[in-house]
Simulated scan of single mutants.
Amino acid sequence: MTTASSENAPAPFDMVGYGYALAGAVLFSTKGIFAKLAYAEGASTEMVMALRMLIAVPVYLVILVMLLRRGDKRLGLLTPKRILPCMAVGTMGYYVSSYLDFAGLAFVDAQYERLVLFTYPFFVFFFGVWFFGDRMKWRLILPMLITYSGLLVIFGWSLAVRPDGLMIGTLLVLGSAIVFALYQHLARREMLIVGSALFTCVGMATAGVFAIGQSLVISGVSGFTELSPSIWFYGVMLGVFGTILPSFLLNAGIARIGARATSSTASFGPIATIALAVIILGEAFTIYHAIGTALVLLGSSLFAGSERKAASTGK
């Protein structure tokens, strides 16, 4: 017999789900580093996107074949009615959002890009309230204001020192964050039906077709044959560590703990990006970066803490 107290009991803290989400966030933070290194060698945004997918898509296709051979019980759900939404949502998250982000990276520093991009949890929250029936939590507004004040500090420094392309780069990355936030909500709905592995394979393969096709239209096959070995190396690193591994980890986290809880782990990504950007790319890290980053991470931590508290108490 189920009592009223047991029905209202909060869901237990899913350590595995949060572990998946955290690992995915940290690995995704390497994406900007590898992209910047490829840009420095002369690669275009479209070519970097295509190289990423050339490495990643075969892996997803192999996994899809393995799922087919294993006879996963969810495969029967892959009717046109189900597979088309998976393809559309995957394209949104892995092509549209990624392209906006990579395009923005051509204009702004990797550490600033990551700090702007990581505001997507706020958009996840608002989309949840506006469109998906989540409850508004006004206590989350203060962490958001703290975070954006930190971004304004770094933006102001960049505007004074390196203003060229700053506005367009910021808007492109912010657009990527908005699209990715909507993707997280829509992806969870599909993954609950077909499973995270199957959804990831279908979505990533579809996005790969768009990315590779776009590069072929712009540069042709010769665009790939004329690439230097170093660009190919960065493409491999981007495909494996910045795409394949984090995509499965992030989607597994979404499937276990939901979009909002998964997004609350995003604050760990900028720390890794900043360290790598300073050490590998030689980007500046001034007192303004320190203040801005501290404010961004403080706001994110407060936001994540409130989200975890809400998940553990059911409020």
Rank of each mutant, 00 (worst) to 15 (best):
M66I: 13
H289N: 15
I33P: 06
Y112F: 15
R52D: 05
K36I: 05
R82G: 07
H185K: 14
A205Y: 02
I141M: 14
T206M: 13
F127T: 07
E283M: 05
Y60F: 15
V240Y: 03
G165S: 07
L192E: 15
S158C: 06
M204D: 03
I244V: 15
G104R: 09
E46D: 13
A304V: 07
P12C: 11
V194S: 04
D101W: 00
D72N: 11
F303W: 07
G93I: 04
T206H: 06
T265E: 03
A9T: 14
A261L: 15
M47A: 05
Q111L: 02
K315G: 05
F132S: 01
R260G: 10
T3K: 03
T30R: 11
T243M: 01
G258H: 09
I254F: 11
T79R: 12
P121W: 10
S158F: 01
I287N: 12
L152Q: 12
L75G: 01
V236T: 12
L84K: 05
I254M: 10
V48L: 14
Q111M: 06
A38D: 05
V194M: 07
G93E: 00
A310V: 12
T147F: 13
Y183F: 14
K137I: 09
R260Q: 13
F34I: 11
G305I: 04
R114N: 04
H289D: 15
A4C: 01
L22T: 15
T45V: 15
S29K: 02
V116S: 07
S44W: 12
F125N: 03
G165L: 07
G169K: 03
P270W: 09
G314V: 11
A304N: 04
V202S: 08
G19C: 06
S230E: 15
